[in-house]
Design a protein around this nucleic acid. Structure first.
Length: 255
DNA sequence: ATGGTTGCCTCGCAA
């Protein structure tokens, strides 16, 4: 089973690229983030006509996540547990066959001195607690999405420039590590230990042209899922096309 | 370099 994650930065603008990518990459499950629309405005019919069912958690203008899959979803969860008052559309989780898959959009958290940063840390802690609950079932699951976390220095073109940023500062990496240390496996890192493998390049300042990016989109596997890992990669193709998202798809193959 | 670009659909905010 091929599972992929892609922050599309508006499903409306990215639909042509998305349909092309579904046809060529043929993922079994694709986790989308930043669809930036209400569920009612999601292009469900067009995507359905290409052979994918859609589970959408939408929000007007901002955020929004979706699961696209070859087969219908079961037992869909539309919010990250832990705060019923959280209105932001950042999480959807469902079962496909014997696999549990989540599409998540972790808060950016900048600026660090605003209330956005404690919200990010609280969200990370909610995710850790939820992952701990999922692990108790000892099943195969994938928590995929835009984590807005640069895990290590090798995951940034210029770590010093990111030192105090909400995506890389120590407190962020510590909170992410608490999640990893439950026993989750970063699918990409498990198969590729090379530095300078990026999933995001800022639109500004020619970052893409100079390959100055960061790796913040991750597929985190339960131990039972990691046992099935066959391969993983970053598909830089979509980032180089016209009307590209600032993120590119990351995928893993599980047997 | 406190710059730069994109998408929301506002007259600025978020990333």
């Amino acid at each position: 089973m091929k599972v992929a994650t892609w922050n599309v930065n508006s499903i409306k603008v990215r639909l042509p690229l998305l349909l092309d990518w579904l046809d060529t990459a043929k993922p079994d499950v694709l986790c989308l983030q930043e669809i930036k629309c209400l569920a009612a405005d999601f292009p469900t019919l067009e995507i359905r006509s290409r052979g994918y069912y859609c589970e959408v958690v939408g929000q007007k203008s901002y955020n929004g996540v979706a699961l696209l899959a070859r087969e219908p979803a079961r037992d869909v969860v539309t919010a990250l547990p832990g705060d019923d008052a959280d209105p932001q559309a950042r999480y959807v989780e469902a079962s496909f066959g014997e696999w549990r898959v989540a599409s998540l959009y972790l808060p950016n958290g900048n600026p660090v001195d605003s209330d956005k940063y404690p919200y990010k840390l609280a969200w990370l802690e909610r995710l850790r607690a939820h992952a701990a609950a999922l692990l108790r079932d000892e099943g195969k699951f994938v928590l995929a999405g835009d984590y807005n976390v640069i895990p290590e220095e090798i995951d940034a073109y210029d770590p010093a420039a990111w030192r105090d940023d909400a995506l890389f500062r120590l407190e962020t990496r510590r909170a992410f590590r608490a999640l990893v240390n439950l026993g989750l496996v970063d699918a990409f890192r498990a198969v590729d230990s090379a530095p300078h493998r990026y999933s995001f390049w800022d639109y500004k300042a020619g970052r893409w042209q100079r390959d100055e990016g960061i790796r913040i989109d991750h597929l985190m596997l339960s131990p039972q899922a990691a046992d099935r890992l066959q391969g993983a990669g970053i598909d830089k193709g979509p980032r180089g096309q016209d009307k590209a998202s600032d993120h590119t798809p990351v995928w893993c193959e599980l047997h």
